Amino acid sequence: MGQNQYGKAENRVVRIVRDGATHHIKDLNVSVALSGDMDEVHYSGSNANVLPTDTTKNTVFAFAKEHGIASAERFGIHLARHFVTSQEPIHRARVRVEEYAWERIGTAGEGGHSFVRRGQETRLAQITYDGQEWEVVSGLKDLTVLNSTDSEFRGYAKDAYTTLEETRDRVLATSVFGRWRFNWTDDAQEMPDWETSYEETRQHLLQAFAETYSRSLQQTMYRMGARIIDHRGEIDEVRFSLPNSHHFLVDLKPFGLENDTADGAVYFAADRPYGLIEATVLRDGCEARIPADLTHP
Rank of each mutant, 00 (worst) to 15 (best):
G2M: 01
D159K: 03
D193Q: 11
Q87M: 01
S46W: 02
L34I: 07
A262L: 11
L242R: 09
V32T: 11
G155T: 14
E211T: 14
Y43S: 07
T201V: 15
G233E: 09
T167I: 05
Q203S: 15
M1T: 11
T122E: 06
D260Y: 06
T162G: 08
G285K: 10
A288E: 14
A64M: 05
P297R: 07
S86C: 10
V116S: 10
T59N: 03
E103K: 14
L172T: 01
S44P: 01
D19G: 09
N259S: 10
S44Q: 02
E166R: 04
T163R: 15
L206C: 13
A48N: 13
L206F: 03
D39G: 04
G119V: 04
K141Y: 01
V84C: 09
F268Q: 12
L140Q: 06
H296T: 07
G233D: 12
G106D: 04
D54C: 08
G233T: 12
T185D: 06
R283N: 07
W134A: 03
W180P: 03
S148D: 14
R283P: 04
C286S: 14
E73R: 00
W180R: 04
L242E: 00
G111T: 11
Q218R: 12
V145I: 15
L51S: 01
S44K: 11
D54K: 10
Q126V: 13
A48E: 13
E200W: 08
T185M: 01
M224I: 03
E199M: 10
L51Q: 00
R12F: 09
Y198D: 06
D271S: 14
G256L: 12
F153M: 13
L249G: 02
G131R: 01
D260N: 15
M221Q: 12
Y267N: 07
A9G: 06
H91G: 06
G76A: 09
L217H: 00
E152G: 10
Q218M: 08
R18V: 11
G20M: 11
E287L: 14
H78R: 05
D19Q: 10
R227W: 02
L124N: 02
G139D: 03
Y274T: 11
F177W: 08
S31N: 07
V136P: 00
R81G: 01
L146W: 05
A210C: 09
L252S: 07
R94Q: 11
S86L: 00
S138H: 04
A21E: 15
D54E: 15
G112H: 05
K65L: 08
P52C: 07
R227H: 02
A226E: 15
Q132R: 12
R239K: 12
P192S: 10
E99T: 02
E88I: 02
T261Y: 10
I16V: 15
L140G: 06
N58R: 00
R181A: 14
N58G: 09
A70S: 15
S44C: 04
F209N: 03
I228P: 02
F63P: 08
S148V: 14
H231S: 11
L294Q: 12
I277N: 03
